[in-house]
Design a protein around this nucleic acid. Sequence first.
DNA 1: CGCTTATTTGACCTCGCTCAATCTGGGTGG
DNA 2: CCACCCAGATTGAGCGAGGTCAAATAAGCG
Lengths: 231, 231
Amino acid sequence: MIRKLGGAHRFSEAEQSAIKKLPISARTLSPQQDIVLENGPSTQCCIILDGWTCCYQSFEAGRRQILSLHVPGDLPDLQSLHLPDPDFGMIALTQARVAFVPHANLHRLIERFPAIGTALWREAQVSAAIQRSWLSSLGRRDARGRLAHLFCELYLRLEAVGLAGGDIFPMPLRQTDLADALGLTPVHVNRTLKELRIADLINLQIRKLEILDWPGLRAAGEFNPQYLHLK
Amino acid sequence: MIRKLGGAHRFSEAEQSAIKKLPISARTLSPQQDIVLENGPSTQCCIILDGWTCCYQSFEAGRRQILSLHVPGDLPDLQSLHLPDPDFGMIALTQARVAFVPHANLHRLIERFPAIGTALWREAQVSAAIQRSWLSSLGRRDARGRLAHLFCELYLRLEAVGLAGGDIFPMPLRQTDLADALGLTPVHVNRTLKELRIADLINLQIRKLEILDWPGLRAAGEFNPQYLHLK
DNA sequence: CGCTTATTTGACCTCGCTCAATCTGGGTGG
DNA sequence: CCACCCAGATTGAGCGAGGTCAAATAAGCG
């Protein structure tokens, strides 16, 4: 499981067995349960095994901004390895299984196997690239474009870990979560989803999203998958 | 100069001299001159020696989003070390002096001195933290808050490298640049600046910004400097 | 079958955008 | 020294995307 995340690199036998020997503690979390608090130092990294989670920053008056969404296979808080004071919180959006590895062990692993450190660095940089594209979305796309872009991104990310196919993927986010991720209001997310549905671009079922018109959705979101750095 | 950037870490003699031996080529750029193109692989990292630069992504219809601003001492494209396909462009906003170091040399340096790699990783993570706070700004702050937050951030970042003091700092950005950074229109930036001026929070001179009311500005931007990870 | 949480819809309002005109200061050539 | 030019700043008028508030409907769930 962890190896898959190493991504664009073939690890040696020794590296693989060292990774497998990491002391991992997995936890199952219920929806809305905190993983990392907005303050307080963190001493471990985590890996999403199952379910969806997010990072967020909160504001006065109960507002919050979701900074990133994580699906199975993601390593959401690699930044904590070298910046132990987190500037954000992490929370489960659905029921989720999350594995934790202490920083100390990771540091030792990286010291022994620099290639693993490189792979982790690369992983962190891909997350940063996704954040950049979110920043552009919030700054320069309207509600329709933001939703379209996000759906394109999620499909490809889920497909990359085998969780999407046939233009359908699981979409357990509430409209409130989408709003917090896209800098919008739940009400307006609702209206814009309706718009996309009427335009026959998507079909949002109970917890599944079907993409009916890829070219249309890609155009609506001005989507270019380069930033995801998938092979 | 480069050592200062290493930041929160004391380098050994050997490390320092190895850094000093890096083959550096400095260039002077005029305003609006490209540093890194939006496509095409990059083979070197850069360090801002003087002047201001930014990273951006561009959209149809001439729109663009500025992803980050760089002031002297910044290492803007560390991500290119492990993701050689850039997903954004970099451009000089003022006349600027920029130093370039080939990736190959940096990789060799990091291999020999892992502590330097750690320092660079940390630096990259601080940039990512700044991006997170920009994301929150675009998502959840109004125009007034975005400007206030940005000015607070810029003051502290410039102060950290000795370029600000006495509540005054150089601010060479045009209103168009501020608009592209904050996801606004130049016209609306203008009006909001006026608002901040009338509220006696700031005093924007020719190319200098004076902060007249720190508590007021901090409150207007809901600014909390933790994310900058300054000592 | 109630209770709670999420989605949907309507009416109204406002922040920020668009378009366009005017003003300003620094630079340039005569 | 002055007339001219031009990029950037400023201002006005009107509009529209998205927000707010509130109510209705639908969908879990014990």
